[in-house]
Structures are given as structure tokens and as C-alpha cells.
Design a protein around this nucleic acid. Structure first.
Lengths: 231, 231
DNA sequence: GTCTATAGATGGATAGAC
DNA sequence: GTCTATCCATCTATAGAC
């Protein structure tokens, strides 16, 4: 963990995406050309946005003709839809695992949820950026499943917060605002964290879990220190 | 301030922009057609992104022919550049005022900076979204001034944090990470706050200043309660 | 300043050979 | 599955009349 010192480096970058590999979660990525299209689209959508990256750009990055893409996806929007789906499903999978593994203690459960969210955004920053920033490029019907998963994620966090507040182990005046604030912390990790930063993913997760515990007035802020990497 | 209760409403919206008016800071908005172009571009860039909104879309919203736009701006990118510039200049103006007005006490100074950042994002959410999300659509040379202002903003916050840590009134293990975390809280306000929310801008600012003070381990978290609306 | 008209480039998507 | 070739819509921007 870096010590207090003079400000020298640039840490509030807008998008340092070129330094981050376009990675997708294991086991869910399609094989072959379809998977390479998905990776190329992930990188380009994250860097330039859905409308800023063309079918021809994606095809060029994959090394195929633009027409070949239509043998794997019905259209450009379907590529984005799959990325958005993968991103939100991976988030929910991790959050549910975290919530279930620490179901006993609401503070530990809250800490586990924050850690899972931070690690997801540290592990797949491009996927998180695309899933969050480019969702508006999908039609309402195609965006709906992702919004439903997002709502599930929100409920998981708020449930832990409400339980902690009810049991008196958390000090939150407004659960809704606290949930938004904690969510904001993790979401932005995708925008600044990368291999160029002098922190490991676990250091960031430790620090942000600590921030979140302080934010919600947890009794013992140092209670939860990375019990597992779960990456 | 809302009390603890069951979760019913949808608060983690992706973009509820239609509910927010496309407002720009007073005194800096161009008059006449040029100003109306700027407002239309603000709304459309925020909703669809720079590449997702065309010159014709903007012109249609203003009620002019697309060619007329070129009598006011050299090109589409120049419209975005002006929005990005306005957004960052307004942020710096408010942060400098906040920092200067509370120069005596580092904790009060930190709180004033957080409040100013939150209020800016609550007052001009569309401008903040465009300035932050669409900056990458500008060429590096045109984005540089905004990045310089952003760096100034970061230094203001970190200076207060370092002073508070040095004087022992703040408890921060890593000033860089704490600065990023606090900045994340305010930045995201532009994504969810709006007239549809059951909070006033000052209630949000109060809550988030409290969150930030807790996050950095301030001695008396309730010390700073909206001394002025400064909007 | 605003318009009509259009140039010139690029966009998503398709047809059909192999 | 991959290619070449192409359709047609839309894009940014310009020319020139009023």
C-alpha cells in the first residue's frame, strides 16, 4: 500500500484502455471466430463506443472480411447485446457467491459483496465499461434483461445493508443513498484501475472494502481482510 | 432524508436523461442560435453519445437546417469541445471557490470540495456526463486542456487530504486511493440524480459529504452541514 | 444567417461464388 | 465459413443562392 506523499502521477485518467487487455470471463467465451469477434468488439466498443466503432473496424481487428461477421452474428447490435449479457451475468454470479458464502454476518456479507464488485471491475474493466456505458445503444427490449440483473445486484447489497442496520452493526441513515454510494465506488474502478497502477487487484479490493465499511459505519472496519482471491 | 425501509423503487438507472433538462451554467452560454445548438448537442450527446448523435439530429432539435450549424461552429467536434471546456471550467471554478472559502481547516476544506463536486454533478448532470464520457471523442490536442483542468481538480482534493493527514485530523492510509474513492462518489451523482429522485440537491450533498468524511476518517463527521447552497 | 442542393466518404447489411 | 462485390442509407461538410 502506497504511503502518503507528494502528488506526481496522473491517476484520474479518462480512459487508459489501451493498456488493458480485452479479456472475457473463462468458460463463457465462444470458441473460434465468434470469440475473436467478441474480443475485438469488446476492445473497440470500450475505446470508441458502440457508434464509434464500425463493423469494418471489428472485422479488421479480427482479420476477417466484414461480411464474414454476419455468419456469426445477425448484426452489430447482437454483438453488443452478448457483451452486455456476459458482463451482467458475471457480476451476478460473483455477487451471489459472495452473498451466500458470508450469509451469517451482515457486515461480512456486505464486505464480501463490495469485494466481489470491486474485483469484477478490476478483472474485467473493459467488459464492465461496455456493459455500463453502452447499454443505452441497445433497444429497450434487449437492454431489459441486463437491467433486471442490475436490479438483482442492487437488492443483494441493500438487503445486507438493511439487515446490518436492523441489527445495529451498521450505522446508515439512508440505505438507498448508502447503497448508491458504495456502488459508485466499485463501478468507477473499471475506469482507472489497470496494470499501469502501482496496486494489485487485492490491494485495491482491500482498500475499497475498508472505505465501504467506514462509509456505512461498520463497527470494526479492519474485520475483513481478503479471505480469498476468488478470481 | 429518507428512512430505512423496504426496497421498492429503481434507483440504479443506466441513464434517465430524458427526465433531466439540458442546462448549462449561467453567464457562459452563448446567446441566440449558437446557444440553442449547444443545448441541443448537450442533450443528444448525453443521451446517445457523440457518434450516436448526428449533425442532422442536432439541427432538427434546434429547428434549423444542418448546414446552418456550420455558420456557428466549424464542425461537430468543435461543439463537443466547447461543452467539454464549459463543464471542466465550471467544475474548477466551483472547486477553487470552495477550497478558498475554507482554507483554514483542512477537514472543512475537504468537505467543501466534496460538496462542490457533488452539487456540480447534481446541477449539471448532462454536462458532467458529456464532459466525462465523451472526452475520448476529441483529438488528444483538444482533450488536453480538459485533462489539465481535471488534474488541477485532483490536486486540490489531494492537497486537502494530505494536509488533513499530516495534521492528524484525517485517517487515510493511502491518499491517492482515498482521493479516487471520494472522486468516484461525486462523479456518479450525474448518472442517477434527477428530479425523479426523492431528494433535493442539498440533501444529496449533505449525505455524500458525510460519506466522504467517514471514508477519510474525519474526527467529527457531522461537523459540516450545508453552510451555503452556492448554486 | 439561413436556406437548397449536393459532393464525397463511410455506415450496416446482403447476394452469390467458392 | 469466408470471400468479392455491391446496395442503399446516412454521415460530415461544402457550394452557392437569397
Amino acid at each position: 500500500m502506497k504511503a502518503v506523499g507528494p502528488v506526481t502521477q496522473m491517476s484520474w485518467n479518462p480512459r487508459r484502455l489501451s493498456a488493458v487487455a480485452a479479456e472475457l470471463p473463462d468458460g463463457v467465451t465462444p470458441a473460434g471466430t465468434r470469440g475473436r469477434i467478441l474480443h475485438a468488439a469488446l476492445r473497440l466498443f470500450a475505446e470508441r463506443g458502440f457508434f464509434g466503432a464500425s463493423i469494418r473496424d471489428i472485422a479488421r481487428e479480427v482479420g476477417i472480411n466484414s461480411a464474414t461477421l454476419y455468419a456469426h452474428y445477425p448484426g452489430k447490435e447482437d454483438v453488443l447485446a452478448e457483451l452486455v449479457r456476459l458482463g451482467h451475468e458475471e457480476l451476478l454470479t460473483r455477487l451471489r457467491a459472495a452473498s451466500g458464502a458470508a450469509a451469517g454476518d451482515p457486515v461480512a456479507q456486505f464486505a464480501a459483496l463490495v469485494r466481489a464488485q470491486v474485483l469484477l471491475h478490476a478483472d474485467y474493466p473493459l467488459l464492465a465499461l461496455v456493459a455500463n456505458h453502452e447499454l443505452h445503444a441497445l433497444s429497450p427490449e434487449r437492454a431489459a434483461p441486463a437491467l433486471a440483473l442490475r436490479e438483482d445486484a442492487r437488492r443483494l447489497l441493500l438487503a445486507a445493508l438493511e439487515r446490518g442496520a436492523a441489527e445495529g452493526v451498521l450505522d446508515v441513515a439512508d440505505v438507498t443513498l448508502a447503497g448508491i454510494a458504495v456502488g459508485s465506488l466499485g463501478l468507477r474502478v473499471a475506469n482507472w484501475f489497470g496494470p499501469d497502477q502501482p496496486y494489485t487487484r487485492d490491494q485495491v479490493a482491500d482498500a475499497f472494502v475498508g472505505f465501504a465499511l467506514r462509509l456505512v459505519g461498520a463497527r470494526s472496519p479492519a474485520a475483513d481482510r481478503h479471505p480469498r482471491t476468488e478470481g
